[in-house]
Amino acid sequence: MNAHLQPTGSAYFLTKETQEIERHTLSVLVDNEPGILARVVGLFSARGYNIESLTVSETEHGRRLSRITVVVIATPRVLVQIKLQLERLVPVHKVHDLTAEGASLERELALIKVAGSGDHRAETLRLADAFRAQIVDASVESFVFEVTGKPAKIDSFIALMQPLGLVEVVRTGLAAISRGPQGM
């Protein structure tokens, strides 16, 4: 495009983001109703928020409540907005920023399939033991391990399995809860 044809301005006022981004884990208590996940995910995509991990399951069957654990990456200003926008959704009961509110526990479960024979097989088992991975399926040429822990631990286990015949991995995504006696 020729320089003289460049627009001389915009109908919108643009500003640069100056804050650093952070990684936060949010716990969201919602009505377990049809479409609730679409509502939450739709909010994130519509407003341009980034989801790193999302886990959802019914946690109180009697009250039909589900708990969503979502890991987001955003600036502090946007993090506050995400929390407020989530709370604005009609079926959302509570939103807690576990990262901001103090100490919390984070766990993830992974199922990892490794195939191989000979020395690789023995090495695989030694490492699995070190990571306290359970063997949940075995055949003469493969194992399926169940490993639980912080996401970083699972990352390292997967990295170690890579040269030993890693076939596939499935991860649950993060489940998180605050430490101490208080509930949500």
Binding site: F13, T15, L84, Q85
Partner: peptide, 23 residues
């Protein structure tokens, strides 16, 4: 322009929607 919006004022904001605050 947000960075030049009312630069010298203390701001009071009444809104029924909490997500409007500091948005």
């Amino acid at each position: 322009r947000i960075d030049a919006f009312s630069p010298h004022s203390r701001k009071i904001h009444v809104d029924i929607d909490p997500s409007s605050i500091n948005k």
